[in-house]
Nucleic acid binder design. Structure first.
Length: 328
DNA sequence: CATCCGTGGAC
DNA sequence: TGTCCAAGGAT
């Protein structure tokens, strides 16, 4: 319940399913998860996004293991890492039968429509919560919450209100207004700025003769924090792609990956080179290319790695018109 | 309260 | 194709 709620934060059921199965079979209990290796958990989360959730999941599992059990009140749950207002209320109501006001994006939308709350988000949150509180029953709050979320997920969706099959249509003021999809009102969002950066595919022939690539681990906070990655020029902090390469090599342009994040669009140039002996500066590890899929790279770097595998020989034949330009 | 944090699917 | 969207949380 706790694991599924965390995975489902801002993430669709379809995206979560296989991850949920994998996590529960590999770490069946909270104690198993608490004892897990950080890197293995982060790798298992790779591709699901919002990686702070995985870091908080581990911290939460360890806190719960230390206590011996989950706390059972909403307020105490709220203190656990990764459990905010929504998740604490959902777990308290659904798992522990408490009366809690559960407000996720579905409930927010359904309530805004039921009461035709015209104030734009996020300012309307207070009024929406008050309205949700007013209609939450004293017993069965968990079932009520799930019913509201199901209604929002399957009937009263963002793009289509489907009032003809809605059991609450006769109560709904937004429907009475004739334009239910106009609710909730949202403030206009700013355009996503464009950022550029470079990532570096450093290859070598490993001790066993197989090809290997140099991978690093990103810092524990910030963009893709705690995840294994290709070395890069610091685009996540600088954003201008003008940072230096990790070392001087005969870099070749392998292509570009465009990737949309929540608040900016990234154009990542992928530069490749082979290294004869020694290691690049800094912390990292040589990873066998034929097992790159098991490295637990977040999607951005998994896509960059796809380009990296096109770097075949120490020096591609001269045809490459990009040689030595983008990646010099 | 605003900003930061991923990703893939729907339209 | 670009835009919007999803069972939010931390700072």
């Amino acid at each position: 319940m706790w694991l599924s709620e965390v995975m489902l934060q801002q993430t669709t059921v379809a995206a979560v399913q296989s991850y949920f199965t994998r996590f529960t079979s590999r770490w069946p209990t909270v104690a198993d998860l608490a004892a897990a290796d950080d890197g293995e958990v982060m790798a298992a989360w790779a591709g699901l996004g919002y990686y702070a959730r995985a870091r908080n999941l581990l911290a939460c599992a360890r806190e719960v293991a230390r206590r011996g059990a989950f706390p059972q009140t909403e307020a105490a749950l709220r203190e656990l890492p990764g459990l905010g207002a929504y998740t604490a209320a959902a777990v308290a109501a659904i798992a522990f039968g408490a009366r809690a006001v559960v407000v996720d994006a579905n409930v927010e939308r359904v309530v805004a429509r039921l009461f035709a709350i015209g104030e734009p988000l996020p300012g309307a949150r207070k009024a929406i919560r008050a309205a949700a509180d007013a209609i939450t029953p004293d017993s069965g709050a968990g079932d009520f919450a799930q019913a509201m979320m199901d209604l929002g997920a399957t009937v009263c969706t963002a793009r289509q209100a489907r009032c003809l099959i809605c059991p609450l249509a006769h109560l709904c003021r937004a429907r009475a207004s004739g334009a239910p999809e106009a609710y909730p009102v949202k403030a206009a969002r700013a355009a996503r700025p464009e950022r550029a950066g470079r990532a570096f595919w450093i290859a070598r022939e490993g001790p066993d003769g197989g090809r290997e690539v140099w991978l690093v681990r990103r810092p524990g906070r910030g963009m893709l924090g705690g995840m294994r990655a290709l070395p890069d020029d610091g685009w996540s902090a600088r954003g201008d792609g003008s940072g230096a390469a990790p070392l001087a090599l005969d870099w070749q342009a392998l292509g570009q990956v465009r990737h949309g994040f929540t608040h900016f669009q990234l154009a990542l140039a992928v530069c490749g080179a082979t290294i004869g002996a020694g290691n690049p500066a800094g912390e990292g590890e040589w990873w066998p290319m034929d097992r790159i899929g098991e490295a637990g790279l977040p999607t951005l770097f998994a896509r960059a790695a796809l380009l990296g595998t096109t770097l075949v020989t120490p020096r591609n034949e001269a045809s490459g018109e990009n040689n030595g330009r983008e990646c010099a």
